[in-house]
Amino acid sequence: MKPILEVKNLKMYYNTRSGYVKAADDVSFVLNEGEAMGLVGESGCGKTTTSMAIMRLLAENAEIISGHIYFKGKDLLKLSEEEMNKVRWAGISMIFQAAMNSLNPVYRVGDQIIEAIVTHEPNVTFEEARERVASLYKLVGLDPKRMDNYPHEYSGGMKQRAVIAMSLSCNPDIIIADEPTTALDVIVQDMILKEMSRIQKKLNMSMIYISHDIAVIAEVAEKIGIMYAGKLVELSDSVTIFKKPAHPYTVGLMSSFPSIKGEKKELVTIPGEPPNLLNAPDSCRFAPRCPFATKECWEKEPPYEEIEPNHFLACFHPQNLRKQVSEYARG
């Protein structure tokens, strides 16, 4: 497997009046060619921040403190804005969180995608772009006749398909999909996710799926990163993450999720609430909620290390799943 994207020790903080919000703090991972990776975590843990850093679409108060983002070997953080513009959409494109609501209501949907193409590829004529959009419509399961409709004439599922078509419009190597199906009903979600997986495999693209829903991620991703409070705390192939997670937060997350299949297991609750990331301390950020916290966890940050091949973890006390669940139940 060949790496296509390497994020190394990325720190991106938001500078606010009250101090730094450490929203992506020392995040490292590798995405390989043709691979589908999932990024999971609760609201505010830094999923969108991490992907915005990769796209270098920074909020005004965002600061990249340190780190590297290698795309095909080049460090994106060192590119000029003009060079970065060539990477955006054609190299890495993004389906933004709630993107389907951001389609401009006064323009025809097809024209908005054509616009995206001709902006990034000035050599492409309007006719060529229109043809490309028609074939993208077919690819995502939309009738090309609908190109001339306005967003309000589309259902939620159709809008999401159009947004996916837009993300594919400049043949990217990587698509980052930020909560691509969160607002959709389950039957539509199922269709869209199937479609995305099919296209990803067909075009041998790399994908990063971002979601708070581990069931969705279980189905689409081969590799999963778990984020907690600005930190990537565990990363491995999806079976390892689900079947033998080592981080106490991952364990809690896995056993707190209701499933419609299999035996009806008792749900585990993770006590407490996610921390405020403002001026986050240099200790394990999960310590206040962790049944295994020791003095060490309160004093320093656990390093992010490869504990077995392709299994990365930031925790001083990795333990096995069963033991941890019963700890939770007691706690």
Binding site: V186, L193, A218, E219, S259, I260
Partner: peptide, 18 residues
């Protein structure tokens, strides 16, 4: 039947047929 078959399952080894 369709509704239940479309619910994602939090188990990467489960092969769901919708």
């Amino acid at each position: 039947k369709a509704l239940i078959s479309a619910v994602p399952v939090p188990d990467p080894e489960f092969k769901r047929k919708s």
